[in-house]
Design a protein around this nucleic acid. Structure first.
Lengths: 323, 323
DNA sequence: TTGTAAGCGTTATCAT
DNA sequence: ATGATAACGCTTACAA
């Protein structure tokens, strides 16, 4: 490069400590040669990287995409990169991903929920980088928590329906096995209903059926039985959409014959006819806040220390035509 | 570790070259200590990493999530990790991401479409790692191509409608600026229509309006004018959903009064009433095939060499109730 | 403000 | 089958 060597490192990391003249010359050389600093070597030397790993159940579902987006965008705005893997709710896959990520000595690690394998727990406990758990909110756990409590969501749904005068409120569970969060929502639903002196009413669709079909099955079974519910809370919007469509084809008037609530506020919720009342989880906010807490922990952005460990976010009830 | 040091490297990379006894002992030590090899150091020493970078316009939209999912899953199945960034269709952001990725000396790089900044082109041309361009299919370009031609999609839609007897077929463009692919689809539409001796008919919604609203605007304007179309192709499913719902509220019968086609086969397409006929792009397959081509290029999986550079995938017409 | 020397934790190369 | 040694391309002292 003519004159300097180490100064190039300063040029990239502490430009203010390089003289105007050299900055100029180095800048030119860099763009002329298309030089890109080797971050691998840099990370090895400094024992820290600007990579953050995130393990999430899936990328393409309606739930997590916004979280990833918010997380990735916030990170990259501060020069950090996202290493991403999906677990499909499998603790083993999660552990593999965490292990692989750890090998990159990431600046921080984000995992979803609090259901981890023993191995994962060990790996996470053994590292000294910031660890964030998202989506579930478990104040008693050690990692930084960013999420909400599904129990509250169940309560919120019932309160809304009770306020609108509905009394015979059924809850349709998810047909997918392993959706523990839905059970939490159901528990919140049951608690409020019982507190109001009403009877909880669970419907469990055929396990393993597609959500859309399961919702249809629930609507048909419930509305052809006796007594009928006057409102149905579905474990998620996919189920609710199936129920809504089934109701249409059965000639039912929604919400007069039966109100319908979902969970998730998936993209289509406002496009259905009638549009679907639902509860919107703070997907994007979870991703963004997780990133902020990570960046704060790393000192990449200022904070009125210490970094807030418990971050409970709010779900939002979106009232539409179906209730 | 008692006896060995370098052998640990072999234990991880070429276990077959380590004696049974040592393998045993190292294995125990590794799991006892929770040792995770430092991939940063390994990459520096070997000048190659098991990281693959992908830059995609967005993560949370209905389009690309499946591509990312397929890509990530296929990679991780072979021990590679995904470094992900989104560009929001901004060439500058894309260039930043590519530059940052390149610093990690990734094993390969995947970018979306062929609209890059000069800087990006230079960076890509200057590297000797495999580069894949996805979604668009541009045979004359140098990188590996995995995608489809939007022009064909326009043709496919019109052929379907003509086959069903529709003649006055309108095309509703995207309200979002910068959607060049939609223009390609429109061109394919126009070509076939003209070849059939019919008149292309473009509708351009108010620029910048939300897709759902734009679709509504299109449906109302077109169906209140004279003459009316007997079929409408929307640039994507969001627009089509808006149109469909507007038609419902206007009391139109779909498809009798007017057929409706979308593009994308978004999750809600089959949940609408009537369900939406649309064209499904090979989102997942693009991700998976991109990963396969990358892995082949790297020798991570076998191939009947050389690696296929041109990979043209098929869109699929999904006929539902709206046509 | 700039430079020199050491070393980050692996793997490649060459021996044994 | 295993080991010694020298890189890999930076950053962190410390010195000039």
């Amino acid at each position: 490069m003519g004159v300097s060597a180490l100064t190039v490192s300063r040029f990239f990391n502490h430009p203010e400590r390089v003289s105007e003249e050299l900055r100029q010359r180095i800048g030119e050389a860099v763009s002329a040669l298309g030089y890109v600093p080797n971050l691998v070597a840099g990370s090895l030397a400094s024992a820290r990287s600007r990579i953050v790993g995130m393990v999430i159940p899936n990328i393409s579902g309606p739930i997590f995409a916004n979280t990833i987006q918010g997380f990735s965008d916030t990170l990259s705005r501060h020069g950090y990169q996202l290493l991403l893997a999906s677990s499909y709710f499998s603790p083993e896959q999660e552990e593999n991903a965490v292990r692989a990520f750890l090998g990159w000595s990431p600046a921080a690690l984000v995992v979803t929920s609090h259901f981890h394998s023993e191995g994962t727990e060990k790996l996470l406990a053994g590292t000294d980088i910031p660890v964030v758990e998202i989506w579930d909110y478990q104040p008693e756990r050690a990692p930084i928590q960013v999420g909400f409590q599904h129990y509250d969501v169940g309560e919120m749904a019932v309160r809304h329906l009770l306020g609108k005068g509905y009394r015979r409120i059924a809850f349709v569970l998810n047909s997918a096995a392993g959706d523990f969060s839905a059970l939490d929502r159901r528990d919140g639903y049951a608690a409020i209903l019982e507190a109001a002196g009403l009877q909880p009413w669970n419907f469990v669709p055929s396990i393993g059926s597609a959500p859309f079909e399961a919702g249809k099955e629930a609507m048909e079974t419930l509305m052809q039985g006796t007594p009928k519910p006057d409102a149905i809370i579905f474990a998620n919007d996919n189920l609710a959409a199936g129920g809504l469509l089934a109701a249409q084809r059965m000639g039912l008037r929604i919400p007069d014959d039966c109100a319908v609530m979902g969970f998730g506020d998936y993209a289509f919720a406002h496009m259905l006819l009638p549009s679907l009342s639902t509860i919107r989880p703070p997907s994007l906010a979870i991703g963004e806040m997780a990133a902020l807490r990570v960046l704060e922990s790393l000192g990449a952005i200022a904070t009125t220390l210490p970094v807030q460990r418990l971050n409970r976010l709010e779900c939002q009830l979106v009232e539409r035509e179906s209730t």
